[in-house]
């Protein structure tokens, strides 16, 4: 039978929870029943993607109501893993990615580059009055 996992997480909008969210991704990579790739590499990548996306939502997606928790879902269905990070703020310009310029050396803007590099499909769209960053990875 196809492996199915659904996690629906709500955390306060504070960076002190980033480590916990990242560790959930690591634990999932080490637990997946049907994954035959490098589990430690997948664990690091899921930790990283969850940390980047959550930190981004905390920074750019803050609700008008500060107490509003941040919602993150992680779903595995067979060989497809989908992470969704929801925000209730004004969002950000997903298309405006700074280039990785070695000479100009920007201090910001590498988070989405990292997510796009490590995941197979990434999109950012409106959802229920806010936005969702949706990231998919094939677990081959």
């Amino acid at each position: 039978m196809e492996e199915r996992i659904e996690l629906d997480i709500r955390v306060p909008n504070s960076t002190c929870y980033l480590g916990m969210i990242g560790h959930i991704g690591e634990a999932m990579a080490r637990t997946l029943r049907d994954y035959h790739g490098d589990r430690e590499e997948l664990a690091y990548h899921l930790n990283l993607v969850l940390t980047e996306a959550t930190a981004n939502a905390m920074k750019h997606g803050r609700s008008q109501i500060p107490e509003t928790p941040l919602r993150i879902t992680i779903t595995v269905a067979g060989n497809c893993l989908v992470i969704r990070v929801f925000d209730q703020g004004r969002g950000f310009d997903f298309a405006a990615l700074p280039c990785q310029d070695e000479h100009n050396l920007p201090e910001h803007g590498r988070g989405l580059f990292i997510i796009r590099t490590l995941m197979d499909r990434v999109c950012y769209r409106k959802s229920n009055g806010g936005h969702v960053l949706e990231m998919e990875k094939k677990l081959d």
Binding site: Y44, L48, E107
Partner: peptide, 16 residues
């Protein structure tokens, strides 16, 4: 054991 884009950004800031 783990560094994200914010950590890299801080090091870039120190370097510059």
């Amino acid at each position: 054991r783990f560094v994200d884009s914010s950590g890299l950004g801080a090091l870039v800031s120190g370097f510059k």
